[in-house]
């Protein structure tokens, strides 16, 4: 079984294409031994296609895999990697790993919360940013670190953090 690339990016595919891709993927998994065990892989795939896990998609997964929706819901809500709401245009993951914490991630987080006026796990009202906690991003050498979409920004200060946000805002205006 091949694994999926896991960056949660919404592809530009049409709804029908996405659904077809998901169904093909599920069908592949169902040919294996213990087909039910591929639920998490399938949810990864769904999130990759849709950016999050919409209820209709979970219904579809239930239908295709023959797994009760309650079970899927239990799994989808257990794992922090799965998002049940659409993400912002830019996903900011702030590393709250130990190295980053010791080097001031707490202040960066505060700066982010103040600047974006949202809490961790939320999306700004304009849909531009969502804020997620991350454990070690593996860039401890650059601590404190945030990842915006798939780019790492390191050695941050609260001030630089705010500047960075403003850069993204400026880009969006263009």
């Amino acid at each position: 079984m091949a694994t999926t690339e896991t960056t949660a990016k919404t592809t530009s595919a049409t709804a029908a294409e996405r659904l077809a891709q998901l169904k093909t993927y599920i069908a592949e998994t169902q040919e294996n031994e213990h087909p039910d065990s591929f639920l998490i892989a399938v949810l990864h795939k769904a999130q990759e296609l849709y950016g999050y896990l919409p209820v209709e998609v979970m219904d579809e997964v239930a239908e295709q895999m023959g797994i009760p929706t309650a079970h899927i819901w239990g799994v989808a809500t257990f794992y922090h990697y799965f998002s049940l709401t659409p993400p912002g245009q830019h996903v900011i993951s702030i590393c709250l790993g130990t190295a980053c914490y010791v080097r001031g991630a707490g202040q960066i987080l505060q700066a982010l919360k103040d600047e974006l006026k949202i809490d961790v796990g939320e999306v700004t009202p304009d849909g531009m940013f969502s804020l997620q906690p991350a454990r070690c991003l593996g860039a401890c050498g650059l601590a404190p670190v945030v990842m915006i979409d798939d780019k790492i920004h390191g050695e941050l200060t609260p001030k630089r953090m705010v500047q960075l946000i403003n850069q993204y805002r400026k880009q969006a205006k263009k």
Binding site: M1, I40, A41, Y79, H80, Y81, R135
Partner: peptide, 10 residues
Amino acid sequence: IEIRLGAGAF
């Protein structure tokens, strides 16, 4: 060998 992914749970 097969690969299975976690999903963010320590």
